[in-house]
Amino acid sequence: MKYTLNQLQIFVAVAQTKSITKASEELNLTQPAVSIQIKNFQSQFDLPLIEILGKKVYLTDFGKEIAISAQEIIDQVNAINDKMKAFKGQLFGRLKISIVSTGKYVIPYFLSGFLKENPGVELSMDVSNRGKVIESLEKNEVDFSLVSIPIDGNNYEYMELLNNELYLVGNPELLSQNPGFNQKQLPSNLPFIFRESGSGTRKTMEYFLKNQEIQITKKIELMSNEAVKQAVIAGLGYSIMPIIGIKNEIQNGSLVIIPHQGLPITTQWKLVWNLNKKHSPVSEAFLQFVAQNKELISKKYFS
C-alpha cells in the first residue's frame, strides 16, 4: 500500500459530498485531478470503493469502512500538527458543529468573537434538520450540535444559550379576513404550513397542536424555515415559527403575530455534545468561550 495523505483527503471529500464535482470545488482542485487521485487510490485495493451512477457517487460497504478509517488517519495527522502549534502558544485546528436550520440565526453570534480571537481555527458547520443533526452526534462526527429541544436519552451534555420562542404567524391581509380565531380550530379556508418530518420546529408544533386539541383541516409541508416563511408571507397559510427567524418580517409588517391560547411556545437553544467526549484543544477552548460570554452575547444580540 502506497496511498498518500492527499489521496485519503480526496477520497474522504468524495465520500462526504458523494460527488466528484463538489469534492473538487471543496478542495479547490480540477475534476480531472480528483478523478485521477481516486483512480490511483482505488488501484491499491482489490475491492471496489465507489460506484458512479450518472453524476452521483455511491460508496460500497467496503468503501464506507475505508472512508471511516481514512478520516481517523486525517484526524490523527491534524492532531499532531495542532499539538506542534500549541507548543508555540497558538490555537489551531478545526471546530466541527452541526446545527438545526433555525440555528443559523443563533450560532454565528457565538462563533464570531471566538474565531476573531483564534484566527488559526477553521470552522466546519453543517446546517440540517434535527434528525440529521442527532445522527452526526451519534456517529461522533462533530464536536458540538445546536438544538432547541433536548435529545432523548442520557448520552449527552448540554449548555443552555438562550430562549427560543415560537409564535403563530400569518399574512396581515389574511388576518384581517379572519378576525375571529376559534381556540380549538384555525381557519379552515387556508392550510397550516409545517416543516418536514425530522424537524425540531415540526416536533414542537405537533406537540402544541395535540396538547391544545387544535384541529388542522389542510396541511402543507415544506423543507426549510425560509420556505415556510416565504409561503406564509405569500398568503398560502399559517404557521408556528421561531421569532428569531422572522424579526425583520414582523417589523416591516409582512408578517403578523396572531395571539392564540398557549402561545408563545418557549424552548431553549442548547449546545450539546456526547457524554464523556474527549474535547480537542479547540473544542475545549470554544466551550470555555461560550460559557464566559453567552450572557453578554444574549443580551447584546437577542434581548
Score class of each variant (00 low, 15 high):
Ala33Leu: 13
Ala33Gln: 01
Ala33Met: 05
Ala33Ile: 03
Ala33Val: 06
Val34Lys: 03
Val34Pro: 01
Ile36Gly: 03
Ile38Thr: 01
Lys39Phe: 01
Asn40Gly: 07
Asn40Tyr: 01
Phe41Gly: 00
Gln42Ser: 13
Gln42His: 07
Ser43Glu: 08
Gln44Arg: 01
Gln44Lys: 05
Phe45Asp: 03
Phe45Ser: 11
Asp46Met: 05
Leu47Gly: 04
Leu47Trp: 00
Pro48Cys: 04
Ile50Glu: 09
Ile50Trp: 02
Ile50Asn: 05
Glu51Ser: 14
Glu51Cys: 13
Glu51Asn: 15
Ile52Glu: 05
Ile52Ser: 05
Gly54Pro: 00
Lys55Tyr: 12
Lys55Asn: 14
Lys55Cys: 15
Lys56Phe: 07
Val57Lys: 01
Val57Trp: 09
Tyr58Phe: 15
Tyr58Arg: 15
Leu59Cys: 09
Leu59Ser: 03
Leu59Trp: 02
Leu59Phe: 09
Thr60Phe: 03
Asp61Gly: 10
Asp61Thr: 08
Phe62Gln: 04
Phe62Trp: 09
Gly63Cys: 09
Lys64Cys: 07
Lys64His: 13
Lys64Asp: 10
Lys64Asn: 13
Lys64Phe: 11
Lys64Ala: 04
Glu65Asn: 10
Glu65Gln: 12
Ile66Thr: 06
Ala67Trp: 06
Ala67Met: 11
Ile68Leu: 09
Ile68Pro: 03
Ile68His: 14
Ser69Ile: 11
Ser69Ala: 14
Ser69His: 15
Ser69Glu: 12
Ser69Asp: 11
Gln71Thr: 13
Gln71Ser: 14
Glu72Met: 04
Glu72Phe: 11
Glu72Gln: 14
Glu72Ile: 12
Glu72Thr: 13
Ile73Lys: 06
Ile73Asp: 04
Asp75Leu: 12
Gln76Ser: 15
Gln76Thr: 06
Gln76Met: 13
Val77Ile: 12
Val77Thr: 08
Asn78Val: 07
Asn78Gln: 02
Asn78Ala: 05
Ala79Arg: 15
Ile80Trp: 06
Ile80Asp: 11
Asn81Trp: 07
Asn81Thr: 12
Asn81Ile: 12
Asp82Pro: 03
Asp82Asn: 14
Lys83Gly: 08
Lys83Phe: 13
Met84Val: 14
Met84Thr: 14
Met84Gln: 15
Met84Arg: 14
Lys85Glu: 10
Lys85Asn: 02
Lys85Ser: 09
Ala86Lys: 05
Ala86Thr: 04
Ala86Gln: 11
Lys88Tyr: 04
Gly89Glu: 08
Gly89Val: 09
Gly89Ala: 10
Gln90Glu: 05
Leu91Gly: 02
Leu91Cys: 01
Phe92Lys: 15
Gly93Met: 00
Arg94Met: 13
Arg94Gly: 04
Leu95Tyr: 00
Leu95Met: 08
Leu95Asp: 00
Lys96Asp: 11
Lys96Thr: 11
Lys96Pro: 02
Lys96Ala: 09
Lys96His: 04
Lys96Ser: 11
Lys96Trp: 03
Ile97Asp: 00
Ser98Met: 02
Ile99Arg: 06
Ile99Glu: 00
Ile99Gln: 03
Ile99Phe: 01
Val100Pro: 01
Val100Trp: 01
Ser101Thr: 09
Ser101Val: 10
Thr102Asp: 07
Thr102Glu: 07
Gly103Thr: 08
Tyr105Arg: 12
Tyr105Glu: 14
Tyr105Ala: 10
